[in-house]
Write a protein that binds this DNA or RNA. Structure first.
Length: 199
DNA sequence: AAAAGGATCACCT
DNA sequence: GGTGATCCTTTTT
């Protein structure tokens, strides 16, 4: 069942954990690609020094303050797009970063996208890590701000037979600069899953 | 106009 | 475990 806006109105830490195992669906001219969500991170509020909103409300972070259920996509390292879903109430800047998926449909389309990208290599677990995930699902600045509740092309659904998987909570990746926030246990992944980006 | 900073990746040991 | 490559956006002068 497709998720409604109420689902994302909750705290991003809650959503990041709950959404593991759900299906991310992306249709485009190239076809349909479906990824099972394996790994996420929560970024929450102006007090979270790892969150973009910690530097205040700017043109870039404006989206985080708006309605939940929209994509927040930005370029990092000048090369990679990071794909997030905005969570929480209006004026509460929160998001869930999608770090890794297991491609369960449209694998040839996803491989083709990885192959034509200059910065990544196709290997056995090719949609692991937020940069590669965005390439495999063709997320870029064109989808920034897209509403995944009303869209029929890009959305998330709870599988019919969903059971809550065993989950590992740990600290977030790449936020070494975030002082006391860097060790917050806001990274979640499905235990023992081969598509987790980093141990 | 210039500088600095990355929510990464691939490859190495 | 660690390092270097990469180049766009944001911030500062």
């Amino acid at each position: 069942m497709k998720l409604d806006r109420k689902y994302f109105l909750r705290n991003s830490v809650v959503v990041a954990e709950d959404i593991l195992g759900y299906f991310l669906i992306c249709k485009s001219d190239e076809g349909k690609v479906v990824g099972k969500i394996i790994e996420t991170e929560a970024y929450m509020g102006e007090d979270d020094l790892a969150c973009h909103a910690s530097r205040g409300r700017t043109k870039r972070t404006e989206l985080l303050y708006h309605d939940a259920g929209h994509l927040y996509i930005y370029l990092n390292y000048g090369i990679f797009y990071m794909t997030n879903v905005v969570c929480g109430k209006i004026n509460s800047p929160e998001a869930v970063l999608l770090r890794s998926v297991e491609i369960i449909e449209g694998i040839e389309i996803a491989k083709k996208r990885i192959n034509r990208n200059k910065y990544v290599k196709l290997n056995h677990s090719f949609a692991t890590g937020p940069g590669k995930l965005s390439i495999a699902l063709d997320f870029n600045k064109n989808q920034n701000g897209l509403d995944i509740i009303t869209s029929n092309e890009i959305y998330i659904e709870k599988p019919d037979n969903h059971r809550r998987p065993p989950i590992v909570k740990t600290s977030r990746i790449g936020v070494y600069y975030a002082k006391h926030c860097k060790n917050y246990p806001w990274r979640f992944y499905i235990k023992d899953n081969p598509f987790v980006s980093k141990k």
